[in-house]
Write a protein that binds this DNA or RNA. Structure first.
Lengths: 326, 326
DNA sequence: CTGTTAGCGCGTTCAG
DNA sequence: CTGAACGCGCTAACAG
């Protein structure tokens, strides 16, 4: 019952201005196929809309339809990685072509009652990056009565990254693996999955279990940290980095330690960020080709919105971008 | 009039279950200070809420209040830079402590009618990254009857980046400036402002006008491009990069060309991305300290929502992070 | 076949 | 603490 500044222009205003009923205005604006409005009337309505600068009030629209065309992506990350940003931007474009609007909410764990964006929003669907196994989170989301799609959920996929890294390294003659873990807390669950993949693949190849070393996001500290790890082993070493960002820190540390890459120590990252090609030496890394899974995701979102059950999503295709660091 | 799956739990359900009226339910849930509800009744209502898993339907809420507590950030960027992402995340946290929810919409120019997120949303305010001088955009947004805050708007601020870069370089003895421009289209207006600052400061210092060179985001191409620029000049050269990402490309090019940094060519970036310290050599760059302007921004958003006029925002503090590249 | 009336959806709030 | 009205767009049912 608030009134802010100049009163909103409503469909009633348009109806009055064009001498028709509100229903007619609605029919014209929504191009209702079940109604045939004479072009002349239609013109009059559209003209009034234009002149008055009318635009329908979305809450009212959502209220009466019981559905909005919003898709809410809930991102519980401390930082939004460029790769994720690109992916979501792309997803948004695709959804837009189906008449949906993708919006992002970036926040802590945002699980607490009224802090959760869905409390303020009512999307047609929620795209959740929460671990699929998190039952509490799932239960919490249920209250909003909105279908939820979990992305990035599979433990298997996380492991595949680590496995792929090890395979590449092993093929290059590496016999001893270090896993360079991130310090960021929000991403530990992801790192754990990748590490597990590294472990399993080491086992499979008959390599010793990986040394796990957390790499601080600071050049001097990274140097010490890498040094520590290398002190504990010898032989031909390969470092599997949680992601490219960690890999940059590792590469800098190795440079500072005067260790030759890839001759003495090989390094492989993950994500293929745009900057990866510019490191010294250029970073060998893993790229997700999510074009396929993206299509699947769009289909799943649309399906879920219309009440169907989602089909399992195809796994992201992983490919190795072999540059000079491994 | 749609009904999806199990009907929503409404406040009427809660009222029925707890034997009170819908009004009372509302009073209890909103802790209305003008009403005194007996603790016992309050308990009963809250219990029913809990048991039924009720959560208010936000469109209805917004409809009746005429205001949502959503703040919409419209981001017309091809990519969301990590720095911007961090800033917005921070802004979101601050707004949350005032009871508002920040959401992002990332899309092309998104100016076309129904494609614009505000068409589907009705935020309490829009945070726009569109150039303040863009009258068409401003007119378009007006139709939504929602206050708009423009961020990142000042040409002066854009110029200050370029100026600061040149000052640092000149102090280090550089006599000839190259401006390394980005290829990304969405960001040209920003780059132009920074370049203009570089120009003006060169003039002020009595240096020759800067050479402008666009740096492609590809290692080999960047090398050629940097080579081109350097062929056209001699003397002690400094390269002002549009941002750190471009700077990484430039640094890689110089490495590939076997040119010493900073002895032969000095390089300075902008943004101080987390990776900046890990380049070879570590990147000298410019950091925005937006903590002050952030406070101002929060205040302005709150002011604008309650119908006041925004106060001019304090300029971002710029500081030079001097590392080894310049 | 065109256009109108009436009433829904749900939370909030005023008068009582 | 309650009944009733309100905000605004949508649409079934109905009238001209």
């Amino acid at each position: 019952m608030a009134e802010k500044g100049p009163r909103r222009v409503t469909s009633a205003d348009v109806a009055r201005a064009s001498g028709v009923s509100r229903a007619t205005v609605s029919y014209v604006l929504n191009n209702d196929p079940r109604q045939s409005i004479p072009p002349e009337t239609r013109e009059r309505v559209l003209k009034a809309v234009e002149e008055l600068g009318y635009s329908p009030f979305s809450p009212a629209r959502t209220l009466s339809k019981g559905q909005s065309d919003l898709i809410l992506a809930v991102l519980p990350f401390e930082q939004v990685d460029p790769d994720l940003a690109r992916t979501l931007k792309d997803l948004g474009t695709r959804l837009a072509s189906h008449g949906f609007t993708l919006i992002w909410h970036v926040g802590e764990q945002s699980m607490t009652g009224r802090a959760h964006p869905a409390f303020h929003l009512t999307p047609a669907a929620i795209l959740s990056y929460v671990d699929e196994n998190d039952a509490t989170a799932a239960a919490f989301l249920r209250q909003f009565n909105v279908p939820v799609i979990a992305k990035m959920s599979s433990e298997i996929n996380r492991q595949r990254v680590g496995r792929t890294q090890v395979v590449h390294l092993a093929q290059r003659g590496v016999r001893r693996i270090v896993f360079a873990a991130p310090e960021r807390q929000d991403v530990q669950w992801l790192a754990q999955g990748r590490l597990e993949g590294v472990r399993l693949e080491c086992e499979k190849y008959g390599l010793e279990p990986p040394i796990v070393q957390t790499i601080p996001p600071d050049r001097a500290a990274a140097r010490t940290s890498v040094q520590d790890a290398l002190n504990r082993i010898d032989g031909s070493v390969g470092i599997c980095c949680y992601n490219d960002e960690v890999a940059f820190a590792v590469l800098a540390a190795l440079t500072d330690l005067n260790i030759k890459v890839p001759e003495t120590v090989a390094v492989i990252g993950c994500d293929d960020i745009p900057l990866a090609q510019f490191s010294q030496p250029p970073l060998t890394t893993i790229r997700f080709d999510n074009s396929r899974s993206m299509m699947g995701l769009v289909d799943n979102i649309l399906a879920v919105i219309s009440g169907q059950t989602p089909t399992p999503m195809p796994a992201d295709q992983l490919s190795i971008i072999a540059r000079a660091s491994a």
